[in-house]
Amino acid sequence: MNFDVRLFTEVVITLFVIMDPPGTVPIFLALTGTMTHKERARAALQAVLVAAGVIIAFALFGQQLLDYMHISLPALQASGGLLLLLIALELLTGKMEEPQPGKVGTNVAMVPLGTPLLAGPGAIVASMLFVQRVDGSAGDWLAVTAGFFVVCVCLWAAMRFAGLIQRVLGETGVLLVTRIAGLLLAAIAVQLMADAVTAFVQAAT
């Protein structure tokens, strides 16, 4: 069994850039601002597990599922961007911090943290492409799996210790970070939808 170091490195770098563990910190703080330390730690683990489950499922069976349902990758990308835009608007307007009737028990670790923020269209497509590159050898499968595991650990660590950043920033600092996170998340959402529209136009021509 030959461990493919190059494939492992590509997986780590590609998914790290796409999933962006440092960039999740302000958004994680914004979405978990009312949680206790223990609840935030649990949310960090749940978000990573949900994201890992979604990505693994799509990596192994995603192409067959999309083909069966006649869904294109740009459509998946556009829907993810739209959902992120709705979350970003809530962060920008402060509605995320307000208690809302009917939303008691909502688990932000699953949506929007686990998906589509962490397990977004970019990470899903990239994982599907990496799996397609595997030639069936155990070494390649181990390289892809190990690379994905390393990125998941980085994501968990970034969110798990986000509380330290919160204590340093204080309440006013966290509020500022929340608004900035909403703005950045809105930009990411618009970019996702723009890329999807571009892909649709290219496919039509």
Rank of each mutant, 00 (worst) to 15 (best):
Val5Lys: 06
Val5Cys: 04
Leu7Gly: 03
Thr9Gly: 04
Thr9His: 04
Thr14Ile: 00
Phe16Leu: 07
Val17Asn: 09
Ile18Leu: 13
Thr24Glu: 00
Pro26Arg: 04
Ile27His: 02
Thr32Phe: 02
Gly33Leu: 02
Met35Ala: 09
Met35His: 15
His37Cys: 00
Ala41Met: 15
Gln46Arg: 14
Val50Thr: 14
Gly53Val: 05
Gly53Ser: 04
Ile55Cys: 03
Ile56Lys: 06
Ile56Glu: 03
Ile56Pro: 09
Ala57Thr: 14
Ala59Trp: 12
Leu60Met: 10
Leu60Thr: 12
Phe61Leu: 07
Gly62Leu: 10
Leu66His: 02
Leu66Gly: 12
Met69Ser: 09
Met69Ile: 08
His70Arg: 13
Ser72Thr: 15
Leu73Ile: 13
Leu73Arg: 02
Leu73Val: 13
Pro74Glu: 04
Ala75Pro: 09
Ala78Asp: 14
Ser79Phe: 05
Ser79Leu: 10
Gly81Gln: 07
Gly81Trp: 11
Gly81Pro: 03
Leu86Phe: 12
Leu86Ile: 14
Ile87Tyr: 08
Ile87His: 00
Ala88Trp: 00
Ala88Leu: 01
Leu92Thr: 01
Leu92Ser: 03
Glu98Trp: 01
Gln100Cys: 01
Gln100Tyr: 00
Gly102Cys: 01
Asn107Trp: 04
Asn107Ile: 10
Pro112Ala: 02
Leu117Arg: 11
Ala119Thr: 09
Gly120Gln: 12
Pro121Tyr: 06
Ile124His: 11
Ala126Arg: 01
Ser127Thr: 10
Phe130Glu: 08
Arg133Tyr: 12
Ala138Trp: 09
Trp141Gly: 12
Ala146Glu: 14
Ala146Tyr: 11
Val151Cys: 04
Leu155Glu: 15
Ala157Gln: 09
Ala162Arg: 11
Ile165Asp: 02
Gly170Val: 04
Gly170Ala: 00
Thr172Asp: 15
Gly173Pro: 02
Leu175His: 11
Thr178Gln: 08
Ala181Thr: 01
Leu185Lys: 05
Ala186Leu: 09
Gln191Gly: 12
Leu192Glu: 05
Met193Tyr: 05
Ala194Met: 12
Ala196Ser: 07
Phe200Arg: 08
Ala203Glu: 14
Ala203Met: 08
Thr205Leu: 07
Thr205Trp: 11
